[in-house]
Design a protein around this nucleic acid. Structure first.
Length: 194
DNA sequence: CGCACGATGCTCT
DNA sequence: GAGCATCGTGCGC
């Protein structure tokens, strides 16, 4: 399986689309879990919703690394979100991975995502940015600021020749709400709500 | 099914 | 001290 290759010239919006259909894997001591990326959001440097919009800080520092680095942050106290850094070095852009279609390690994902309710449906395992982080066993302490494909997390090239992609505004933000920077696989039942 | 709300703590002002 | 790129539960239909 060929790895996804990052091109220096590829801008963040085009990367956000290029990632749709690629497989994301995470290997831990418990095994491998993986899924096809079906939903992404781009965060650009002149974008008020972007974590790198103001200043470089301890939290957003990974966003200023080279394309292909991993940027993970804490949100709402109990969750984490996973991004792939894009743009040029020091530009501060990234793509948020919002949903996956589970492919490997379904049993493992079930255990990691277990709640009070039993038998979580496959389509609910990775249908949100923090859900997929849980399901894959991604952790800020372990994976933040590492280069993808040179650590426990791998990104494989798309196997289908073409995919149909829909573009909309982003979800769950207030600033920059009108910008059409969200992309998802047309017709997928694995994307996050709305 | 949809909607409203509370949990929970890191990050930056 | 306020805000936050979220999620699960509980309730009403």
């Amino acid at each position: 399986m060929p790895q996804f290759s990052f091109h220096k010239k590829q801008d963040t919006l085009s990367l956000a689309q290029a990632l749709i259909g690629c497989e994301l894997l995470c290997e831990t001591e418990n095994g491998v879990a993986a899924g096809i990326i079906v939903e992404t959001e781009a965060y650009l440097k002149d974008d008020p919703a972007c974590h790198a919009y103001n200043k470089k800080t301890a939290r957003n520092a990974p966003m200023f690394e080279a394309a292909g680095h991993i940027y993970i942050y804490h949100i709402y106290g109990m969750y984490q979100c996973f991004n792939i850094v894009s743009g040029k070095q020091d530009e501060g852009e990234a793509v948020l991975i919002r949903a996956l279609e589970p492919t490997q390690g379904l049993e493992l994902m079930m255990q990691r995502r277990a709640t009070k309710k039993q038998n979580l449906a496959t389509k609910d395992l990775c249908s949100g940015p923090s859900k997929l982080v849980q399901a894959l066993g991604i952790n800020i302490e372990v994976h933040n600021n590492k280069p993808i494909n040179a650590c426990e997390i791998s990104l494989l090239a798309r196997t289908k020749a073409t995919v149909e992609i829909v573009q909309t505004t982003r979800i769950g933000i207030v600033k920059g709400k009108e910008l059409p920077y969200r992309f998802y696989l047309k017709g997928s039942e694995y994307i996050s709500k709305k």
